[in-house]
């Protein structure tokens, strides 16, 4: 691969108490590339994604084995500050989850908790991120209205803007368009195209057309294992394994 290695997962196992949800996963992520994680529901895509920003730390009795390197440093090292780590790795969730605050405050939130107090800087960043998330034109006259008044697609783009505001290096997206209509979905996909120049993007999707449209690299998960990973074009046209072929041609899943 001709790009910079940004994150690298090495022999990762993950347990929910006694249940082994991920088994021996090794996978690299490159800067400026979109990596799609596909696979049938329940195969561990979300679990895997949530290991990457240590969101699973919040789940009682869960356990991680193996290494995840961000710029060659293990994010599970005990010296790592989890809050700082999460501000470097943004996340967009499956269901839009704006705070019950104004649009402005939603985007400013991450800046404030990361210690930015300068009012003009905050205002600039809010505008910039809303622009990047292709939402500015729709909300510029009402950024002090409640975010809950926005439509689902707008809320999701707001959540993306919120994640962009703190200038993360990596952005994790867990089926960001699964709760949206086709037009809103298209907007999100265009957005991903725009954003990949600046960020390392990892997106979970159960929609294979979407994976084919937005990603450069695709990884196929099945029952907690990483079955196959390749350039998206290659994986969808000439999969090496029978299992992958069956899944992408819709013979199971």
């Amino acid at each position: 691969m001709d790009a910079d290695l940004k994150m690298s997962v090495k022999q990762l196992n993950f347990f929910y108490d006694k249940f082994k949800a991920l088994e021996n996963i090794s996978l690299d992520f490159y800067a400026g590339h979109v990596t799609a994680l596909i696979g049938p529901s329940g195969c561990g895509k979300s679990t895997f994604l949530r290991c990457l920003n240590r969101m699973n730390d919040l789940i009682p009795k869960s356990r991680v084995e193996g290494k995840i390197l961000l710029d060659n440093e293990d994010i599970y090292d005990c010296a790592v500050n989890v809050a700082t780590l999460r501000s470097r790795i943004g996340m967009v969730f499956q269901k839009p989850n704006p705070f019950p605050k104004t649009i402005f405050e939603n985007v400013a939130y991450g800046l404030r908790v990361n210690g930015i107090k300068d009012k003009t800087l905050i205002a600039d960043r809010v505008t910039e991120s809303l622009n990047q998330a292709a939402l500015w034109d729709e909300v510029k006259d009402r950024i002090y209205d409640s975010a809950l008044e926005l439509s689902g697609g707008q809320q999701q783009r707001l959540c993306i803007a919120r994640a962009l505001a703190i200038k993360p290096e990596v952005i994790l997206m867990d089926e960001p368009a699964s709760a949206l209509d086709p037009i809103a979905t298209q907007k999100i996909e265009e957005l991903i195209h725009q954003l990949k120049k600046m960020f390392t993007i990892i997106i979970v999707t159960h929609n294979m057309q979407q994976a084919a449209r937005v990603s450069d690299i695709t990884a196929f998960f099945y029952m907690g294992k990483l079955i196959e990973t390749d350039k998206t074009d290659t994986l969808f046209t000439r999969p090496k394994l029978k299992q992958t072929e069956d899944y992408i041609t819709g013979r199971f899943g």
Binding site: A83, T84, R86, G90, N97, Y109, G110, V113, N114, R162
Partner: peptide, 8 residues
Amino acid sequence: EASFALGA
């Protein structure tokens, strides 16, 4: 989770 994910 949204708040944690933003580094809070």
